[in-house]
């Protein structure tokens, strides 16, 4: 065991953790909200909305994230001129942008299915009661359907967050210095593969179980109405 190499590399690992948390957290945060319109389009009777959202979800759930990342990062290079014209090349030339862009589109696809499942699981009668009170479509979604769907979908969403934290490790292949990127760099420079990746694994475990602990608290709050306290 070469502990010194890890101790020396600690500041870089901390930067890696920040990158991992930022990329996973940023893509999850944007994806959480972007998934809502996608889920609504998936349940829409409008054929354009339905096919557009279904095509999107099918592609991003049906192909490997790594392939998607290459498609965006290397594929964008082929459209260098076109992207330049519309002012987007400065973004698509950057690995950080391509990484967050792809991660976001990917988690949005998965999260939209969680939202859709949650919305569909709400008993029709509860929705009817809200309509009977005169709530508008938006108020119905905002006050009844979204909170209900969130409660129903939270356990599934917790899994999505866990997968996403781990999936961010793929961005290291387009030279982003996340936890895995730092581990690779330290490992190959000092020839300490075993130590570096074991430490990286420990960091992922910490992040994942940190989130799971937090998720339990959220779940308690979301499911407080299921507590059977006969007061």
């Amino acid at each position: 065991m070469n502990i010194n190499a890890i101790i020396e590399g600690l500041p870089r690992f901390i930067d890696g953790v920040i990158i991992t948390v930022t990329y996973a957290g940023g893509s999850l945060l944007i994806g959480f909200f972007m998934a809502i319109p996608v889920a609504l389009m998936r349940s829409s009777r409008n054929r354009f909305f339905y096919w557009f959202s279904t095509g999107y979800v099918t592609f991003f759930r049906g192909t490997p994230l790594l392939a998607q990342l290459f498609l965006v990062y290397y594929g964008a290079g082929q459209f260098h001129h076109e992207l330049d014209v519309i002012g987007l090349w400065d973004f698509f030339r950057e690995p950080w942008f391509c990484a967050i862009f792809t991660l976001t589109l990917n988690t949005t696809a998965y999260t939209s299915e969680i939202w859709r499942g949650g919305l569909q699981a709400i008993p029709k009668a509860e929705i009817e009661a809200a309509r009977a009170c005169g709530l508008s479509d938006f108020q119905l979604l905002r006050h009844i359907m979204f909170p209900r769907a969130l409660g129903i979908g939270w356990p599934a969403y917790t899994n999505e967050v866990v997968y996403q934290i781990q999936a961010t490790s793929l961005v290291s292949v387009i030279s982003v210095m996340d936890i895995t990127g730092v581990a690779r760099s330290i490992a190959s420079r000092d020839f300490v593969y075993y130590e570096a990746f074991l430490f990286a694994a420990a960091l992922y475990l910490l992040l994942v179980y940190g989130f799971i602990a937090f998720s339990r608290l959220v779940e308690k709050k979301l499911h407080r109405h299921l507590k059977d306290t006969t007061t």
């Binding site: 009668a125 509860e126 009817e128 009661a129 809200a130 009977a132 909170p147 209900r148 109405h225």
Partner: peptide, 14 residues
């Protein structure tokens, strides 16, 4: 127009 249903249909999360 108030409406009262057979199965109450209260919102369980509230």
């Amino acid at each position: 127009v108030g409406m009262v249903f057979q199965d109450f249909n209260l919102w369980p999360h509230k």
